[in-house]
Design a protein around this nucleic acid. Structure first.
Lengths: 96, 96
DNA sequence: ATAGAGTAGTTTATAATATAAACCAAATGA
DNA sequence: TCATTTGGTTTATATTATAAACTACTCTAT
């Protein structure tokens, strides 16, 4: 079994954590993701943008209680990419 | 269950492939690893050095049929680090 | 009303990483 | 003999991740 390449968009601790989280909750706010991942706001902002550029998540901006609110949602492509990533990764980590 | 940090030495496709390979075969030559991973020689050279610096592999240089030969072997620390990495990674990729 | 602190981010600069290109030394083959 | 090949290493460059600085508000207390 060959070692397939790992999607570089997902092979990043923070982006993987974000996608992993969104896979299970479907939708989450910036601040919540920040809390769950312990990322700095700047880093999270950049990485969310990359996930959006890759088409793996959607970002919706609104206001909640007068404050800006950024809501993230996983896309079909994101779920698909995650599944493929996990499949490929198994080849690296499963005992032979 | 919290998302533990992933060892940055192992969270690199090529280094992970190298360690994964060495875990299963115990010992391998530079050229063999290069063939299995499709890495360029330069990249592999650098990454092997990093794994050595981290104490995850041993590198032994000798000559075989007049040509230089670089043999790599996993260390106890390498096995331990890989196990921990896999454990932590499971939190990211396993379905919740 | 306004100064100070806090919220929710983005942008930009820097540090770290990965990768490729160039190079080296010796061996082999035409 | 000189061009190629083998088996690498070193160095330069592109990519990534991260932190620091900044923007644009809001809230609270005076």
């Amino acid at each position: 079994m060959p070692l397939n390449d790992l999607d570089p968009i997902l092979h990043s601790q923070l982006r993987l954590a974000v996608v992993s989280l969104l896979i299970s909750v479907k939708e989450a706010e910036f601040t919540h993701i920040r809390g769950q991942t312990n990322a700095t706001a700047g880093n999270l902002s950049v990485q969310l943008q990359k996930l959006k550029d890759a088409g793996y998540i959607e970002i919706e901006k609104s206001f909640k209680d007068n404050y800006p609110q950024t809501t993230c949602r996983i896309t079909k492509a994101g779920i698909q990419a995650f599944d493929t990533y996990v499949q490929n990764l198994q080849q690296y980590i499963k005992p032979k």
